[in-house]
Design a protein around this nucleic acid. Structure first.
Lengths: 146, 146
DNA sequence: TTAATTTAAGACTAAAGAGTCTGAAATCAA
DNA sequence: TTGATTTCAGACTCTTTAGTCTTAAATTAA
């Protein structure tokens, strides 16, 4: 298991950030993404298709085709991606798995987790994808050529 | 996928807390646990066996047999349980799945996640299982008879 | 000692997640 | 128009996680 998001979702987050570093409108092929991010080709293809269907990306077939962001980068957040792939179940639900855990009927870490859950949400929404990707360039993307 | 811990781990946390509410030394059968916590019988059996092997529980066969905590409740935390079942990989590793994400080479949410990760760790260790279980009694366990 | 009760162990099945493969459809450039 | 390049779609396999089933071994009480 991955830490918090599914493998698919992790790949989606990486790919969307990568696309956000491109000039607006520029198309990027699966081939490039798969090489730079080291994600299995066909698996990534499916994920990007999925994101396209949901409007987060747009795609174009043929040579010069590929994928690009489907909306202005300032309108996309990491949360949109997580929502599209894994859904939002992490925003509710008991971290200990109690089916009946609620505010009135809390488990022992209910309050503590509520704070952390909000923290995760804020992590995903407090910057748009343009800002996030720019930050990323200082880190994990520095070794890549674009 | 569950939120943060595997299903097995969630069940283990629930069961250990349940056992912590019993008088020290009192044996509890899988049957009782499975009924009160609504966890599949044989699956729970395996999980408890696993925890026994690791010393967190002790077990006794035969009628009047069952499971009990393997150490004084004040020496056990939720972290011990998570460690035994899921391991501690959530304490390292990039939440976006970048293999190369480090302090020198961070992803865009590296710092933010580092704070949350510490928060999760604190949630699991800052009270021992006796305190945790007592708290629980006010919540998810109130509807159960012991 | 015997029968009932309980955990122990391992093989098995089911479902979900991850990843692969093939061929069709669209698009572009020569 | 043709060939190359790309996404699209679906069926397929592999691996992991979840859950089931059966039998053996230990223990207790009658």
């Amino acid at each position: 298991m991955s830490i918090l998001f599914s493998r698919q979702c992790e790949y989606a987050l990486q790919a969307v950030c990568y696309l956000a570093l491109k000039k607006e409108g520029e198309m990027t092929s699966i081939k490039e993404l798969t090489e730079k991010l080291e994600i299995p080709y066909h698996f990534l293809g499916k994920i990007l298709q999925n994101l396209s269907r949901k409007g987060l990306l747009r795609s174009l077939k043929g040579p010069t085709g590929g994928f690009a962001l489907g909306m202005p980068p300032k309108e996309i957040t990491l949360f949109h991606v997580v929502e599209a792939i894994d859904g939002v179940k992490f925003t509710s639900g008991c971290v200990m798995g109690f089916p009946e855990c609620t505010g009135k009927n809390p488990c022992a870490v209910h309050e503590h987790w509520a704070g952390l859950r909000d923290g995760i949400y804020r992590m995903l929404v407090h910057r748009n994808i343009a800002e996030v990707a720019k930050d990323m360039r200082k880190g994990v993307y520095t070794s890549l050529r674009h």
